[in-house]
Write a protein that binds this DNA or RNA. Sequence first.
DNA 1: CAATGTGATGGTAGCGCTACCATCGCTCCT
DNA 2: AGGAGCGATGGTAGCGCTACCATCACATTG
Lengths: 342, 342
Amino acid sequence: MTKPRSRRGGGRPTIADVARKAGVGAITVSRALREPERVSEVLRRQIQAAVDELGYLPDPNARALASARAEVFGVLVPSLTNSVFAEVLRGIYDSLFDSSYRIQLGNTHYSGLEEERLLQVFGPQRPAALIVAGVDQTPTSRRLLETAGCPVVQVMETGPDPVDMMVGFSHFDGGKVATEHMIEMGYRRIGFIGARMDPRSQRRLAGYRAAMEAAGLFDARLITTTPVPSSVTLGRELFRDALAKVPTLDGVFCNNDDIALGALFECHRASIAVPKTIGITGFNDLDMMEVAFPSVTSIRTPRYEIGRRSVAMALAAIAGKRPQEPVVDLGFELKRRESTAR
Amino acid sequence: MTKPRSRRGGGRPTIADVARKAGVGAITVSRALREPERVSEVLRRQIQAAVDELGYLPDPNARALASARAEVFGVLVPSLTNSVFAEVLRGIYDSLFDSSYRIQLGNTHYSGLEEERLLQVFGPQRPAALIVAGVDQTPTSRRLLETAGCPVVQVMETGPDPVDMMVGFSHFDGGKVATEHMIEMGYRRIGFIGARMDPRSQRRLAGYRAAMEAAGLFDARLITTTPVPSSVTLGRELFRDALAKVPTLDGVFCNNDDIALGALFECHRASIAVPKTIGITGFNDLDMMEVAFPSVTSIRTPRYEIGRRSVAMALAAIAGKRPQEPVVDLGFELKRRESTAR
DNA sequence: CAATGTGATGGTAGCGCTACCATCGCTCCT
DNA sequence: AGGAGCGATGGTAGCGCTACCATCACATTG
């Protein structure tokens, strides 16, 4: 008489269809799908057969509404094109591939305001977990994270005051170690060149500064930065600026590998010997740094591993098994290469 | 008496709360939010005030369930780390930022099976649109796309038989133009080196082959490929292999810029003069190609624009304004640079 | 002035699923 | 033997929202 299926477009099978076909109650189908161990072997088999026959797939929206919890991981990164975050994402995706969790990815463009906006959007969806890059959320964002009612993992760096959990490493230490290495290799007038200068870059700069000051080599004129987004092109330009400003420059610690590559290319173009006349150190250790000529010293960062670990921690928290230590420092590794082998 | 809010965790305000506070029916609130022009000025104002005061945010899951349509764009790309797709994504995200659409991103790892799986997962969600990379879907995937009941945009390349809409360019032509350019510049023993060799790479190779054959220069031994994922490191290795196989090689058309960069670095390392002894052409024209020393000739591809356009087309289709021509060819541009300036 | 729109608003009935509680048959204990 | 305890199953009542249809005031028409 009534046509209850008429509104729904596809007329896809629902849990009621499966239940009817399997000769059980709808709730039993639901259980068989979500907690199989609570349903008897026999019914489970019947239900599975009905599911297969009908090609039933549960509606995630209805699930989310009924259970007040969506099987979604919300992920917030500041950039999609920065290969560093791309690798973190890869780790996250790989870790979640076998699960039934979907991923909703937001791009904050390094903006606190956009981050707030995206968290507002994620909130009503009741995600299963939230993974956000960085530790410098605005007060509003922080409150949104704290009241999200789900596990939250801040990734990329470690810090003192986690919203919930953290996975990363110390960018300050990274900058410090890189700089100390150059000092050790005999460089004295070591410049810092950096673009974007997001909070993590700032901390690398602070590490550089600490190392330079400790060695009595610090000179503010050695620092060349810009808020402009990083690129190889920009690296070249910044390097030229730095050299023009301080002609006695004998090394550069670059905020990231793109910048380092730009500096390296400029050295080639200007026939500046690397590592003899100028030493170069990058940050992140992208694949190409090892292949470059000369190969470029860099700080290897555990990007993929950060992605994997963040998911592992979130999943554990969802399962009620919170880690002892909420802050995980995955460290980094100095890769000594030709570009600083004076 | 009853505690109807007890199940729901946060006790967030619902549309009923807003309706009560504004002194109107729930449905009117719903309309005020979705089709403001259908609600009188006065009520609209009252409702807005109530929304602001309560901090009401609609539950997207309930919306999706009730309206049989989720405000979600499903996006499927084969790789997260390949910067080509990262830029397509950036275009998609930028185009959707002001809208209320969320984005759910799937990574197919260049696998037809994983693509099918992801489409299965996206389906029950009833996304507003689907954007998928490539035109070589498996029959199952194709069927899933055709029955998705929403606009579908295939991106990255153009082809003869769109599921629905397409935005991209001809990889065959790209390979052909690149190769013809090298022939024109006087190169004769031009190798093709490529990794991954996904369908788009195959078509670039076919373009290369067509150009070489037309010039009477084709020789199968000039082709060096591997199914291994592309990287700068791999580019270097493949280039060495190619040179070992054909010592008379005087140029290489590289499947992509990473490979080209690897080849360039190897030339530096082996003191092979570029472009004099060997010419190099890349594909995609990443930022660094212009900065490299020597700068590297490449095919500039409209990646960001593909992302933007795909969203524009999907949005138009959602609004019922399907484009005249479902297949949009955005073309490409040959960037002549030092690496082929013999 | 009755008949007929027309636009604004509201009520009802779900969307497909799961939380909660009830029921039922069985085992196991005293 | 009787009842507590337990595991398996099902019914009911929503989750928060929107599609559909009804209603109502007011304008328009001949």
